[in-house]
Amino acid sequence: MSFHWLKTDHSLPPAPQSNGAPNKKGYLEKTLREITSFFVNGIFSEETTAKAGFLQALDPRAKVFTLGIFVIAVTLYKNIYILLGAYAFTILLAHLSKIGIGFFLIRVWLFIPLFSGIIALPAVLNIFVPGDPLVDLVTLEKEIMLGPLKIPQTVSVTKQGLLSASVFVMRVATSVSLVVLLTLTTKWPHILKSLSVFRVPQFFTFILGMTYRYIHLLLRLIEDVHLARRSRTIGKEKASSGRKWIISQIRFVMKKSLSTGEQVYSAMVSRGFMYELKTADNFKIKPIDYAWSAFAVTVTAVTLVLNWI
Protein backbone atom coordinates (compact mmCIF):
# COMPACT_ATOMS: atom_id res chain seq x y z
CA MET A 1 0.00 0.00 0.00
CA SER A 2 1.39 3.39 -0.91
CA PHE A 3 0.97 6.34 1.40
CA HIS A 4 2.80 8.84 -0.78
CA TRP A 5 -0.14 11.26 -0.61
CA LEU A 6 0.20 11.30 3.18
CA LYS A 7 3.83 12.28 2.97
CA THR A 8 3.50 15.07 0.41
CA ASP A 9 4.37 18.62 1.30
CA HIS A 10 1.44 20.39 2.86
CA SER A 11 2.84 23.89 2.96
CA LEU A 12 -0.34 25.89 2.53
CA PRO A 13 -0.71 29.34 1.09
CA PRO A 14 -1.27 32.02 3.72
CA ALA A 15 -4.69 31.92 5.35
CA PRO A 16 -7.20 34.09 3.50
CA GLN A 17 -8.16 37.31 5.22
CA SER A 18 -11.48 37.38 6.97
CA ASN A 19 -14.09 39.49 5.20
CA GLY A 20 -15.13 40.81 8.57
CA ALA A 21 -18.56 39.16 8.48
CA PRO A 22 -19.49 37.49 11.77
CA ASN A 23 -19.29 33.73 11.78
CA LYS A 24 -22.87 32.51 11.62
CA LYS A 25 -23.75 29.46 13.63
CA GLY A 26 -25.88 26.83 11.93
CA TYR A 27 -29.41 26.26 13.19
CA LEU A 28 -28.46 22.75 14.25
CA GLU A 29 -25.62 23.95 16.42
CA LYS A 30 -27.77 26.67 17.92
CA THR A 31 -30.57 24.23 18.66
CA LEU A 32 -28.20 21.77 20.32
CA ARG A 33 -26.61 24.50 22.43
CA GLU A 34 -30.00 25.84 23.45
CA ILE A 35 -31.37 22.42 24.40
CA THR A 36 -28.25 21.61 26.42
CA SER A 37 -28.24 24.94 28.19
CA PHE A 38 -31.98 24.60 28.85
CA PHE A 39 -31.40 21.33 30.64
CA VAL A 40 -28.27 22.44 32.42
CA ASN A 41 -29.32 25.93 33.48
CA GLY A 42 -32.82 26.52 32.23
CA ILE A 43 -35.01 24.88 34.81
CA PHE A 44 -32.70 24.06 37.64
CA SER A 45 -30.00 26.34 38.82
CA GLU A 46 -27.20 24.68 40.75
CA GLU A 47 -25.87 28.09 41.65
CA THR A 48 -28.97 29.33 43.48
CA THR A 49 -29.66 25.98 45.19
CA ALA A 50 -26.23 26.21 46.81
CA LYS A 51 -26.84 29.66 48.37
CA ALA A 52 -27.37 29.93 52.11
CA GLY A 53 -30.89 31.36 51.89
CA PHE A 54 -34.14 30.80 53.74
CA LEU A 55 -35.83 28.31 51.40
CA GLN A 56 -32.54 26.49 50.73
CA ALA A 57 -32.25 25.75 54.45
CA LEU A 58 -35.64 24.00 54.58
CA ASP A 59 -36.15 20.28 54.21
CA PRO A 60 -37.17 19.61 50.56
CA ARG A 61 -40.28 17.72 51.69
CA ALA A 62 -41.44 20.66 53.79
CA LYS A 63 -40.78 22.94 50.83
CA VAL A 64 -42.67 20.79 48.32
CA PHE A 65 -45.57 20.44 50.78
CA THR A 66 -45.86 24.12 51.71
CA LEU A 67 -45.29 25.56 48.23
CA GLY A 68 -47.74 22.94 46.96
CA ILE A 69 -50.52 24.10 49.29
CA PHE A 70 -49.72 27.71 48.42
CA VAL A 71 -50.24 26.88 44.72
CA ILE A 72 -53.59 25.21 45.51
CA ALA A 73 -54.64 28.23 47.60
CA VAL A 74 -53.64 30.66 44.83
CA THR A 75 -55.90 28.88 42.35
CA LEU A 76 -58.80 29.37 44.81
CA TYR A 77 -58.23 33.06 45.59
CA LYS A 78 -60.71 35.39 43.90
CA ASN A 79 -59.78 38.54 45.76
CA ILE A 80 -57.25 40.54 43.77
CA TYR A 81 -55.78 42.14 46.92
CA ILE A 82 -55.09 38.74 48.49
CA LEU A 83 -53.52 37.63 45.19
CA LEU A 84 -51.36 40.73 45.07
CA GLY A 85 -50.35 40.06 48.68
CA ALA A 86 -49.48 36.45 47.80
CA TYR A 87 -47.41 37.61 44.85
CA ALA A 88 -45.56 40.15 47.02
CA PHE A 89 -44.92 37.31 49.48
CA THR A 90 -43.20 35.25 46.73
CA ILE A 91 -40.91 38.22 46.02
CA LEU A 92 -40.13 38.45 49.73
CA LEU A 93 -39.32 34.71 49.76
CA ALA A 94 -37.05 35.18 46.73
CA HIS A 95 -35.25 38.00 48.54
CA LEU A 96 -34.87 35.92 51.73
CA SER A 97 -33.53 33.04 49.61
CA LYS A 98 -30.85 35.29 48.12
CA ILE A 99 -32.25 35.13 44.61
CA GLY A 100 -31.71 38.31 42.61
CA ILE A 101 -35.12 40.03 42.31
CA GLY A 102 -34.47 41.10 38.70
CA PHE A 103 -33.46 37.58 37.72
CA PHE A 104 -36.51 36.16 39.53
CA LEU A 105 -38.98 38.61 37.90
CA ILE A 106 -37.55 37.99 34.43
CA ARG A 107 -37.74 34.24 34.85
CA VAL A 108 -41.38 34.42 35.96
CA TRP A 109 -42.71 37.14 33.66
CA LEU A 110 -40.80 36.48 30.48
CA PHE A 111 -42.82 33.63 29.05
CA ILE A 112 -45.64 31.97 30.89
CA PRO A 113 -47.68 34.91 32.22
CA LEU A 114 -47.01 36.66 28.91
CA PHE A 115 -48.93 33.90 27.16
CA SER A 116 -51.56 33.80 29.89
CA GLY A 117 -51.86 37.59 29.47
CA ILE A 118 -52.64 37.09 25.77
CA ILE A 119 -55.30 34.55 26.71
CA ALA A 120 -56.77 36.88 29.35
CA LEU A 121 -56.70 40.00 27.18
CA PRO A 122 -60.09 39.49 25.42
CA ALA A 123 -61.73 39.15 28.85
CA VAL A 124 -61.20 42.86 29.53
CA LEU A 125 -63.65 43.71 26.73
CA ASN A 126 -67.39 43.94 27.19
CA ILE A 127 -67.76 41.40 24.35
CA PHE A 128 -66.92 38.64 26.84
CA VAL A 129 -67.44 40.21 30.26
CA PRO A 130 -70.22 42.79 30.35
CA GLY A 131 -69.92 45.50 32.99
CA ASP A 132 -69.19 49.13 33.79
CA PRO A 133 -67.22 50.64 30.90
CA LEU A 134 -63.87 52.21 31.76
CA VAL A 135 -62.54 53.08 28.31
CA ASP A 136 -64.54 53.05 25.08
CA LEU A 137 -62.53 51.57 22.23
CA VAL A 138 -64.76 51.41 19.12
CA THR A 139 -68.31 52.54 18.35
CA LEU A 140 -70.08 50.51 15.66
CA GLU A 141 -73.18 51.42 13.69
CA LYS A 142 -75.21 48.79 15.43
CA GLU A 143 -74.91 45.67 17.54
CA ILE A 144 -73.51 42.61 15.66
CA MET A 145 -74.34 38.99 16.35
CA LEU A 146 -71.52 36.53 15.57
CA GLY A 147 -73.04 33.15 16.30
CA PRO A 148 -73.56 33.01 20.04
CA LEU A 149 -71.31 36.06 20.49
CA LYS A 150 -72.92 39.50 20.77
CA ILE A 151 -70.66 42.44 19.86
CA PRO A 152 -72.16 45.56 21.49
CA GLN A 153 -72.42 48.84 19.61
CA THR A 154 -69.71 50.35 21.80
CA VAL A 155 -66.80 48.00 22.45
CA SER A 156 -65.16 49.01 25.70
CA VAL A 157 -62.85 47.85 28.44
CA THR A 158 -64.96 47.06 31.49
CA LYS A 159 -64.11 47.30 35.15
CA GLN A 160 -65.32 43.75 35.76
CA GLY A 161 -63.42 42.42 32.71
CA LEU A 162 -60.19 44.09 33.79
CA LEU A 163 -60.59 42.66 37.27
CA SER A 164 -61.22 39.09 36.06
CA ALA A 165 -58.25 39.29 33.64
CA SER A 166 -56.04 40.64 36.43
CA VAL A 167 -57.14 37.85 38.77
CA PHE A 168 -56.31 35.27 36.09
CA VAL A 169 -52.89 36.75 35.29
CA MET A 170 -52.01 37.18 38.97
CA ARG A 171 -53.00 33.59 39.73
CA VAL A 172 -50.72 32.32 36.97
CA ALA A 173 -47.87 34.67 37.92
CA THR A 174 -48.04 33.74 41.61
CA SER A 175 -48.28 30.00 40.90
CA VAL A 176 -45.36 30.18 38.46
CA SER A 177 -43.38 32.23 41.01
CA LEU A 178 -43.92 29.55 43.64
CA VAL A 179 -42.78 26.78 41.27
CA VAL A 180 -39.77 28.83 40.17
CA LEU A 181 -38.90 29.41 43.83
CA LEU A 182 -38.98 25.67 44.40
CA THR A 183 -36.78 24.85 41.41
CA LEU A 184 -34.31 27.63 42.16
CA THR A 185 -33.83 26.60 45.77
CA THR A 186 -34.05 22.81 45.58
CA LYS A 187 -31.93 20.29 43.73
CA TRP A 188 -33.78 18.32 41.08
CA PRO A 189 -33.22 14.90 42.71
CA HIS A 190 -34.49 16.30 46.01
CA ILE A 191 -37.65 17.61 44.37
CA LEU A 192 -38.27 14.20 42.84
CA LYS A 193 -37.78 12.40 46.13
CA SER A 194 -39.98 14.88 47.96
CA LEU A 195 -42.87 14.13 45.61
CA SER A 196 -43.47 11.07 47.79
CA VAL A 197 -45.14 13.58 50.15
CA PHE A 198 -47.94 13.70 47.58
CA ARG A 199 -47.88 9.89 47.20
CA VAL A 200 -46.29 10.01 43.75
CA PRO A 201 -45.01 6.43 43.12
CA GLN A 202 -41.25 6.04 43.58
CA PHE A 203 -40.92 4.20 40.30
CA PHE A 204 -42.29 7.22 38.49
CA THR A 205 -39.91 9.67 40.16
CA PHE A 206 -36.94 7.33 39.63
CA ILE A 207 -37.69 7.04 35.91
CA LEU A 208 -37.99 10.83 35.71
CA GLY A 209 -34.60 11.17 37.40
CA MET A 210 -33.02 8.69 35.03
CA THR A 211 -34.57 10.40 32.02
CA TYR A 212 -33.09 13.72 33.08
CA ARG A 213 -29.70 12.09 33.68
CA TYR A 214 -29.55 10.28 30.33
CA ILE A 215 -30.86 13.22 28.32
CA HIS A 216 -27.68 14.92 29.50
CA LEU A 217 -25.54 12.01 28.37
CA LEU A 218 -27.19 11.74 24.95
CA LEU A 219 -27.08 15.49 24.40
CA ARG A 220 -23.37 15.49 25.10
CA LEU A 221 -22.95 12.62 22.65
CA ILE A 222 -24.93 14.45 19.95
CA GLU A 223 -22.90 17.59 20.54
CA ASP A 224 -19.61 15.65 20.26
CA VAL A 225 -20.69 13.92 17.06
CA HIS A 226 -21.81 17.22 15.59
CA LEU A 227 -18.53 18.93 16.48
CA ALA A 228 -16.55 15.99 15.07
CA ARG A 229 -18.44 16.35 11.80
CA ARG A 230 -17.97 20.11 11.76
CA SER A 231 -14.24 19.72 12.21
CA ARG A 232 -14.19 17.68 9.01
CA THR A 233 -16.58 19.82 6.99
CA ILE A 234 -14.79 22.04 4.53
CA GLY A 235 -16.61 24.80 2.70
CA LYS A 236 -20.30 25.54 2.67
CA GLU A 237 -22.69 22.67 3.04
CA LYS A 238 -25.92 22.15 1.13
CA ALA A 239 -29.07 22.32 3.24
CA SER A 240 -30.23 18.98 1.83
CA SER A 241 -27.06 17.17 2.94
CA GLY A 242 -27.46 18.74 6.39
CA ARG A 243 -31.00 17.40 6.59
CA LYS A 244 -29.88 13.93 5.51
CA TRP A 245 -27.24 13.97 8.18
CA ILE A 246 -29.78 14.94 10.85
CA ILE A 247 -32.02 12.04 9.85
CA SER A 248 -29.08 9.61 10.08
CA GLN A 249 -28.21 11.05 13.49
CA ILE A 250 -31.74 10.58 14.80
CA ARG A 251 -31.38 6.90 13.93
CA PHE A 252 -27.93 6.77 15.53
CA VAL A 253 -29.10 8.39 18.78
CA MET A 254 -32.12 6.11 18.88
CA LYS A 255 -29.86 3.05 18.55
CA LYS A 256 -27.43 4.45 21.09
CA SER A 257 -30.17 5.18 23.60
CA LEU A 258 -31.55 1.66 23.21
CA SER A 259 -28.16 0.05 23.78
CA THR A 260 -27.45 2.40 26.72
CA GLY A 261 -30.83 1.46 28.15
CA GLU A 262 -29.95 -2.23 27.97
CA GLN A 263 -26.61 -1.66 29.67
CA VAL A 264 -28.14 0.50 32.38
CA TYR A 265 -30.68 -2.23 33.07
CA SER A 266 -27.81 -4.75 33.36
CA ALA A 267 -26.02 -2.44 35.78
CA MET A 268 -29.20 -2.23 37.89
CA VAL A 269 -29.68 -6.01 37.84
CA SER A 270 -26.05 -6.49 38.79
CA ARG A 271 -26.67 -4.55 41.99
CA GLY A 272 -29.73 -6.46 43.07
CA PHE A 273 -32.62 -4.82 41.19
CA MET A 274 -35.32 -7.36 40.40
CA TYR A 275 -38.74 -5.84 39.85
CA GLU A 276 -39.23 -3.48 42.71
CA LEU A 277 -37.43 -0.20 43.18
CA LYS A 278 -36.18 0.79 46.62
CA THR A 279 -34.98 4.24 47.53
CA ALA A 280 -33.95 6.01 50.70
CA ASP A 281 -33.17 9.57 51.55
CA ASN A 282 -31.06 11.28 54.12
CA PHE A 283 -33.38 14.20 54.69
CA LYS A 284 -33.72 15.49 58.22
CA ILE A 285 -36.79 17.40 59.41
CA LYS A 286 -35.71 20.25 61.67
CA PRO A 287 -37.79 22.45 64.03
CA ILE A 288 -37.73 25.24 61.43
CA ASP A 289 -39.43 22.90 58.93
CA TYR A 290 -42.28 22.24 61.38
CA ALA A 291 -42.55 25.95 62.17
CA TRP A 292 -42.58 26.90 58.49
CA SER A 293 -45.16 24.21 57.63
CA ALA A 294 -47.41 25.34 60.50
CA PHE A 295 -47.06 28.96 59.36
CA ALA A 296 -47.91 28.00 55.76
CA VAL A 297 -51.01 26.02 56.76
CA THR A 298 -52.23 28.85 59.04
CA VAL A 299 -51.65 31.59 56.46
CA THR A 300 -53.38 29.53 53.77
CA ALA A 301 -56.39 28.84 55.99
CA VAL A 302 -56.74 32.48 57.11
CA THR A 303 -56.38 33.91 53.60
CA LEU A 304 -58.87 31.41 52.18
CA VAL A 305 -61.40 32.40 54.85
CA LEU A 306 -60.76 36.12 54.14
CA ASN A 307 -61.12 35.40 50.42
CA TRP A 308 -64.58 33.89 50.89
CA ILE A 309 -65.91 36.50 53.33
Binding site: K187, G209, Q263, R271
Partner: peptide, 20 residues
Protein backbone atom coordinates in the same frame (compact mmCIF):
# COMPACT_ATOMS: atom_id res chain seq x y z
CA UNK B 1 -21.81 6.22 32.60
CA UNK B 2 -24.08 3.20 32.35
CA UNK B 3 -23.33 2.17 35.91
CA UNK B 4 -24.11 5.58 37.38
CA UNK B 5 -27.82 5.87 36.67
CA UNK B 6 -29.05 7.51 39.86
CA UNK B 7 -29.60 11.22 40.27
CA UNK B 8 -26.95 11.80 42.92
CA UNK B 9 -23.78 10.08 44.06
CA UNK B 10 -25.35 9.26 47.45
CA UNK B 11 -28.31 7.53 45.78
CA UNK B 12 -25.93 5.66 43.51
CA UNK B 13 -23.89 4.21 46.35
CA UNK B 14 -27.03 3.39 48.36
CA UNK B 15 -28.74 1.62 45.43
CA UNK B 16 -27.08 -1.79 45.90
CA UNK B 17 -27.49 -2.17 49.67
CA UNK B 18 -31.10 -0.93 49.49
CA UNK B 19 -31.97 -3.52 46.86
CA UNK B 20 -30.28 -6.23 48.86
Amino acid sequence: DVQLFSSTVWDEIAFGPLHL
